[in-house]
Amino acid sequence: MIASIKKFLISQRTKLLIATFILFAAISITNFIFVYYITAQTNDECLWIEKYERKDSVVIIFDQVKEGGVTYQAGIRDGDILVAIDGKKAINNFVATQILDKVQKGDYATYTVKRGDQVFDTPVIVKKLINISGLAYVLLSSLWLIVGFIVVLVKPDGKTQLLFFKIGIFLVVNKMTSMLYRGMVVDNPLFVSPIIPLIIDNLAQFAGIFLPFMLFKFFSIFPKDFAYSTRKWFNKTIYLIPIVISIGFLIYKIIFVYSYKYEK
Rank of each mutant, 00 (worst) to 15 (best):
S4Y: 11
S4H: 12
I5K: 10
I5E: 05
I5R: 06
K6F: 05
K6I: 11
I10K: 11
T14S: 07
T14D: 04
L17C: 09
A25D: 01
A25S: 06
A26R: 07
T30F: 11
Y37V: 10
Q41V: 14
C46L: 04
C46W: 00
W48I: 07
I49Y: 09
I49K: 11
K51Y: 10
Y52P: 07
S57V: 11
I60D: 00
Q64C: 10
Q64M: 12
K66Y: 09
A74V: 06
D80W: 13
I81W: 01
I81R: 04
V83E: 01
K89W: 11
A90K: 07
N93C: 01
F94T: 02
L100M: 13
L100Q: 03
V103I: 10
Q104F: 02
D107G: 00
Y108D: 09
T110Y: 09
T110Q: 12
V113R: 00
K114H: 03
D117K: 14
T122H: 03
I130N: 01
S133K: 13
A136K: 15
L143S: 03
G148P: 02
G148R: 03
F149W: 12
F149Q: 02
P156M: 14
D157L: 15
K159V: 14
F165W: 09
F165S: 04
I167Q: 00
G168R: 05
I169N: 02
F170C: 04
V172K: 00
V172I: 03
T177P: 03
S178N: 10
M179F: 09
L180D: 13
L180F: 11
M184A: 00
V186E: 04
V186C: 07
F191R: 09
S193C: 10
I199F: 14
I200R: 13
L203A: 12
F206D: 14
F206E: 13
G208H: 15
P212S: 01
F219V: 08
K224L: 14
D225M: 02
S229C: 05
T230D: 11
T230W: 04
R231D: 12
F234P: 01
N235A: 05
K236D: 01
K236H: 02
I238Q: 04
I238T: 03
Y239C: 03
L240D: 00
P242A: 13
I243W: 01
I245S: 06
I247S: 06
L250A: 14
V257L: 06
Y258F: 15
Y260M: 15
Y260N: 15
E263K: 11
E263T: 12
